[in-house]
Amino acid sequence: MNETKNIVLAEDNTTLSQLLKFRLQKEGYTAFIAQDGKQAIELIEKHNPNLILTDIMMPFISGLEVISHVKNKLKLETPIIVFSAAGQEEMVLKAFNLGATDFMAKPFSPNELIIRIKRILI
């Protein structure tokens, strides 16, 4: 029997975060939702997730700062998938330079996200 994989989802759009939480739970994952980067860091430190999903543009602490905190301060190798509105190439490049694993432009397909998650969490 596989152990349940924990995922922290940092997304300030409540509708999208609830949709993704439902979809992740349907696939058998445990999803912890953060409405901003500050909450995301708290959840990451508390739950040590198998995967982090984060928007780049969020209140208080950005997704880039979340990536930096995870990789540099916590020294975790946790895979991170970043999403952002299209047309923010500079932000995407920064995210990869900080250690992001993958990127998806918004709007994206939840089905495609699930496929990417499964590929990372083999």
Rank of each mutant, 00 (worst) to 15 (best):
F96C: 13
M58R: 10
M104C: 05
A85I: 13
V92C: 13
L121H: 05
A95L: 06
I80R: 08
H69Y: 13
F108C: 04
I61N: 01
T30G: 02
G87C: 13
F22N: 10
N72R: 15
P110K: 06
G28Y: 00
F60H: 06
K5V: 05
I117A: 09
K106I: 14
F108Y: 11
L43Q: 15
F32H: 15
K71T: 08
R116A: 06
L24V: 03
T54G: 01
T15Q: 10
V66Q: 12
G63T: 03
D12I: 01
K118Q: 15
K118W: 04
K75S: 10
E42V: 05
A95K: 03
G99R: 15
A40R: 03
G87N: 15
L53G: 03
E27R: 11
D55H: 02
K46Y: 00
N6E: 12
G28K: 02
L43H: 04
K5T: 08
R119V: 06
K106V: 06
I117F: 00
A95F: 01
A34N: 13
S68F: 12
L19F: 08
A105Y: 09
S62G: 07
I122D: 13
K38C: 02
M91A: 14
P59S: 05
V70W: 00
K46L: 00
E3S: 14
I67V: 14
N97D: 15
G37M: 04
H47V: 05
A105M: 10
L24Y: 07
Q18R: 15
T54V: 02
G28E: 03
L98E: 07
R23I: 07
E112V: 10
P49Q: 13
L9Q: 02
K46N: 00
M58F: 08
F22W: 09
K26L: 13
A100P: 12
K94N: 12
E3N: 14
A86N: 05
E42F: 00
T101N: 12
I80L: 02
L24M: 15
G99L: 15
S84H: 10
L113T: 09
N2H: 10
A100R: 02
Y29S: 10
A100F: 00
L113W: 09
T54E: 03
T15C: 03
N111S: 09
T101I: 09
N2S: 15
I41N: 04
K118R: 14
A85W: 06
